[in-house]
Design a protein around this nucleic acid. Structure first.
Lengths: 226, 226
DNA sequence: ACAAAAGTGTTGGTGCTACACCCATGA
DNA sequence: TCATGGGTGTAGCACCAACACTTTTGT
């Protein structure tokens, strides 16, 4: 109505599997800007919203175009609309956050234009993107504790240790395996099979239990997306 | 960028003081549409975002213009952007929710164009506004339980009964005065004075304790507004 | 004195944390 | 048989709901 450009951006979270004796941690892909403003700086993947797609659709499309990623979870984060957040003109950005599985993350071809960074240690980003990532990280960590989004990092079947390591990576602290089991086990269904091969007792495999709703997300449903 | 109109709307909550022997309840002001689409239906107050104001500023300004209200609390709710949510063209709405004190609410002159409705029993509204109000109500009720937004309904000084009645009105259920006191009293500071005049023991007056942060709102601060 | 609301005490239950302990497997 | 992680048991503590009880005022 008043010459305001509408953009979408997405903070994409994936887990880097743990570098030899270390613990896994949260990484995000960024794209290098190849034009002013902030030419050369790294920024969140995103683009403009077209007239014939919903906001979530626009986020998905931009994600696929810029990073080739298809997330297993996508949720709106916040609408950023300060007047001076872009030096080149007024831009309102609807920002989403997304989770991708480790195998999917590998598809995001690293290159001159796309690179993964540890979410906790970023360089100076374009626009207000540093603050946006911080906020998204806070939401991820907060939501992990009262919902089951951790499963979006994993495949269809997983062990309790897999799931616990996701939590430990996101929260950056070790968790008691015994207590962790008691917290999450009631929300999962065992597949009946176990994983042999380790040099210890084979763990059971579990699966997502669709019939249990752990989060009350209100009238808009599971992903707060109307 | 693509001919998308950007609007802001606000769900404004106030408490109606309790109609003779009843309990207080949550009401919201709506404005009657005087043009297509949805001509004649009630809708959330709002308007277009101009180029020189932030989203929160736009929300405040539209609120003041359409209802003459100045809220004591304002927080972004969600960005609604489905393609077909307006029959007249593509509109993306950044929706805020607000709390106003009872005395302030009285300033919203009722008239042919502005009227208050009980939030739990609305007529059919324009656009997707029924769903939006439901979502805002859910956020209000959810946030009431882990934050101190209830204070935004009250003045600078209040009794514990005042505060409890706010909670009871929003949650629509009676609360145990003894347990309620223990929950909230540690977060308040007594003024030292009491209110006499009632036909019973005079209650103490309390005040907001600014030094206690009860909600962890993440990097964006208290109102999630960057 | 009595009604009514303010304010305090107490008790039983629930859930979580920390840690001890047993189990099943590969080497 | 030993090391390793999987899995179970349990004691202690914090928190919370329910409700009995005391306090302080106005009439």
């Amino acid at each position: 109505m008043a010459g305001i450009d509408l953009a979408v951006s997405t903070v994409i979270f994936a887990l880097r599997p743990a570098a030899e004796g270390e613990v896994a941690s949260v990484w995000i892909p960024l794209v290098r800007r190849i034009a002013e403003p902030f030419d050369g700086l790294w920024a969140l993947p995103g683009g403009w919203v077209t007239g014939d797609e919903s906001l979530a659709d626009a986020a998905s499309r931009n994600l696929l175009e810029t990073t080739a990623l298809e997330p297993s979870y996508l949720e709106q984060l916040y609408a950023f609309g300060d007047v001076d957040r872009s030096p080149s003109g007024r831009v309102v950005s609807i920002v989403y956050w997304a989770l991708v599985r480790a195998d999917e993350a590998a598809r995001a071809a690293e290159g001159e234009n796309v690179r993964w960074f540890p979410a906790d240690d970023l360089p100076r980003l374009a626009f207000d993107h540093n603050a946006i990532v911080e906020y998204a990280l806070w939401r991820l960590r907060t939501k992990l504790e009262y919902s089951r989004i951790a499963l979006a990092f994993l495949g269809a079947e997983f062990t309790l240790t897999d799931l616990r390591e996701v939590h430990e990576a996101v929260l950056r602290k070790p968790l008691d395996p015994a207590n962790f089991r008691r917290q999450v086990e009631p929300t999962l269904v065992p597949t009946g099979t176990v994983v042999s091969g380790g040099r210890h007792r084979p763990p059971r495999l579990y699966r997502y239990n669709h019939s249990i709703e752990l989060v009350d997300n209100g009238p808009l449903g599971k992903e707060n997306t109307p």
